[in-house]
């Protein structure tokens, strides 16, 4: 991707409250570049509740409403229906939720909105734990990962919830996984989501330097390694078409390399890493990637 061709228009203000190197802040910045100014954000409790600034300041240059944790997709449904009634069908109503607000407490509202084919874009920025409250396990936390509520590592039987296919099973207009470490893919997917009509869902892997126990500088690198190791597969599903893997590395990097680059996995022994590699291999094989 030629970054020189990316628009210089920013929809975020400087001075936001994201931690240094935050993947969520960066993802928002670029998502808005694609979505443009006819966009508004509905935001349940998440790191972004803080990132967006303290009253009376705002980090976004598009309308934003904060909502309680479990409600994003439902609130967005109400917003979209209101805009339709106002004759402003063309406004992108975007839920911007974390993994907790999507995989866990917000899942019911998400499922409801998806089933009703609400014309909204739901973006889950997944940093794989409750980071805003200080790194507690969520159902997006990968097996083996340390969190403050899984101090000896998330048990391997707790496999990360398969949000992609959960949403796909609602047969929405568009579903994709993406990460800002793959800008081309990220931009294309947001563009597709923007142009599709109906319920659209984008699952973003979003690095959290404090929560993943990585140096802030390695934020993008770690997201990239997640894809290169097959831990996070970039794919999409357009309505009426089969699921498509949008990026496949020439060869997958051993998961060990990904795990050991992060403090949250440093306690893992060889045996556990091997087991995790087997789990990943099985997943990749099921996708026809191995």
């Amino acid at each position: 991707m030629d970054f020189r061709e990316v628009t210089n228009i920013e929809y975020m203000n400087q001075g936001d409250f994201a931690c240094p190197g935050c993947g969520a802040g960066l993802s928002m910045r670029h998502a808005l570049k694609v979505l443009g100014d006819k966009t508004l954000i509905v935001m349940p409790a998440s790191c972004w509740s803080i990132i967006s600034g303290v009253f009376p300041t705002a980090a976004l240059q598009v309308p934003l409403m904060h909502v309680p944790f479990a409600t994003a997709a439902a609130v967005a449904s109400g917003v979209k229906n209101a805009f339709r009634k106002k004759g402003q069908e063309d406004v992108n109503v975007v839920c911007w939720a974390g993994d907790g607000g999507t995989f866990d407490i917000g899942l019911q509202a998400l499922s409801g909105a998806a089933e009703r084919k609400e014309d909204i874009i739901y973006v889950c920025y997944d940093n794989e734990a409750y980071m805003n409250t200080g790194i507690q396990r969520s159902s997006a936390t990968p097996p083996g990962a340390w969190t403050t509520t899984t101090p000896t590592g998330n048990p391997l039987i707790y496999e990360k919830k398969d949000m992609f296919n959960i949403v796909v099973s609602h047969n929405p207009a568009y579903v994709a996984t993406a990460t800002i470490a793959y800008p081309d893919d990220f931009y294309q997917k947001f563009e597709k989501a923007k142009n599709a009509k109906g319920f659209r869902f984008i699952h973003l892997l979003s690095a959290c330097p404090p929560g993943w126990r990585i140096d802030s500088k390695d934020s993008v690198k770690t997201m990239r390694l997640a894809v290169e190791s097959g831990v996070f597969v970039l794919m999409e599903k357009e309505q009426g078409k089969p699921t498509k893997v949008t990026y496949k590395p020439d060869r997958f990097v051993p998961i060990k390399e990904y795990l050991l680059s992060q403090g949250r996995y440093k306690h893992l022994d060889k045996d556990t890493i091997n087991k995790l590699q087997i789990m990943i291999n099985e997943h990749l094989a099921s996708l026809g990637l191995l």
């Binding site: 309680p68 409600t71 997709a73 439902a74 409801g112």
Partner: peptide
């Protein structure tokens, strides 16, 4: 799909 969402949608619509 629930009262939680019923009132949430009303919240969204009203804010809109």
């Amino acid at each position: 799909e629930s009262e939680l969402s019923a009132i949430s949608a009303a919240l969204g619509a009203s804010q809109a």
